[in-house]
Simulated assay, not measured.
Amino acid sequence: MGQGDTGRWISPHRLGRSGHQRIRLDPSNAELLGCRLGERTYLFKKYDSDARRQIDGEALDALVGWRTGLPAGQRRRLDAGAAWPHFGVGSPDQPQGVLVPYADPEFLMPNPTGPGLVPRTLGWLVPPSADQPRPRRRPVPLRTKLSVLAEVIDTVLWFHDHDVVVNDVQFENVLFSTQGHGTYFVDCDSMVVAGRIVSPPAAPAYLNEVVRASPGPSRATDFAKIAWLAVWVVLDQPDLLEIPNRLRSGLAGMLRADVAEFLLAAHSAADFGPAHTDRWRRLVREWRRPESSSGAGPGGRSGPPLPGERPGWASPALLDTVLDRLDQAHRVIVGPAADRGVPPACPVAPDQRNLR
């Protein structure tokens, strides 16, 4: 298949620089480059030579094309919740990478160790491991954790309803909103559309350790990983590779015995079926944060601050809106949030987990 056959592939020569530095995705096999295509700003996820040899270009072409084939309303839903590739770079025969959008500023947070903003990944819901450089944070209320997990589950269910397996479900690949409503999935070229795998799975060692003996990515393995994430987040213990009886009892006390039993059973990635899907949907309804009495709705929330929020300080999303209005008032031509120093939503966390 040639480069111009589908309209979904862009020559790298058409990409302009947007002024961003290179971001190496470690331990991934790619780097991120800020770029422009016409008037749009993207991140060019550029595969290294090893990755290019392993990429199934036809599967990647189908993955990019899946988005364009969605009805407009469903495509807006996808774009609001995932950095799905808009274009391939190169050709299906010689894929060099993909162009992905930047995350909305609501999924970013002030950098606790320096200037600027960083992605608010699920990793910020749990304490860092002893060997991680990330600063410690205040404990996150259980109600907030469950609300975020409900949004993660809801998005994964949406993908499953559209015959997409998320595959690489992990702390670093999901961002959550300052408002506590909504999540943003990154590293979407690792997802599996209609059973077609773009490249060999590259799950972190700790997930390979706990989700064993899986024949390949499936809805069951997605939810086995979510079950582990939920246990780690609820118990505030991301280093667990086994769950002793005392912690099982603690989990039951925090979530109800039937919910704890369901999560622990889901770890095995076996015996998955419609009944399990319905149970996950019920968890979304039970855990999702109710609307505040002020009627804030999906865009607002009440309750304790989330990681990265400072009481009395404007959220990144609000600051970005103010900047936009000031720019318009002074007739200053500016780029999107990415061009004002907002870092990209990328599959690299403030910390890289090594749970072995």
Rank of each mutant, 00 (worst) to 15 (best):
W9F: 04
I10E: 08
P12I: 01
S18P: 07
G19Y: 08
H20R: 15
H20I: 01
Q21K: 14
R22S: 12
R24L: 11
R24D: 13
L25I: 15
D26H: 13
S28I: 13
E31R: 15
R40Y: 12
R40A: 12
Q54F: 11
Q54E: 14
Q54L: 15
I55L: 05
E58A: 14
A62W: 05
P71I: 00
G73I: 05
R77N: 02
L78R: 07
G81Y: 03
A82W: 03
F87G: 02
P95E: 04
Q96A: 10
V98L: 09
V100D: 06
A103F: 05
D104P: 04
D104F: 11
P105V: 09
E106F: 06
F107M: 08
L108T: 11
G114H: 09
V118A: 07
T121A: 01
G123V: 07
G123M: 10
V126L: 01
S129W: 05
S129G: 14
D131V: 12
Q132H: 09
P135K: 00
R138N: 09
P139E: 04
P139A: 04
P141T: 02
K145S: 08
L146E: 06
S147H: 03
E151F: 00
E151V: 02
D154E: 11
L157W: 06
H160L: 01
N167F: 01
Q170C: 12
L175P: 14
L175C: 12
S177Y: 00
G180C: 01
V186D: 09
C188Q: 13
M191A: 13
V193M: 12
A194S: 15
A194D: 13
G195T: 02
V198F: 06
S199I: 08
P201D: 10
L207W: 03
N208W: 12
E209N: 09
P215M: 02
S218F: 11
S218E: 11
A220I: 07
A230F: 04
L235Q: 08
D236T: 05
Q237F: 07
P238G: 06
L240V: 03
L241P: 06
R246H: 14
L247H: 08
L251V: 04
L251Q: 07
A257D: 15
L263Y: 13
A266M: 14
A269R: 01
D271P: 04
T277E: 15
T277L: 15
R279S: 15
W280V: 01
A296P: 02
G297P: 03
S302V: 06
G303T: 00
P304I: 00
P304C: 02
G308I: 04
E309A: 00
R310H: 15
G312W: 11
S315I: 03
L319H: 09
L326A: 10
D327C: 10
G335I: 01
G335Q: 04
D339C: 06
D339P: 03
P343Q: 09
A345Y: 10
V348K: 13
P350D: 05
D351Q: 12
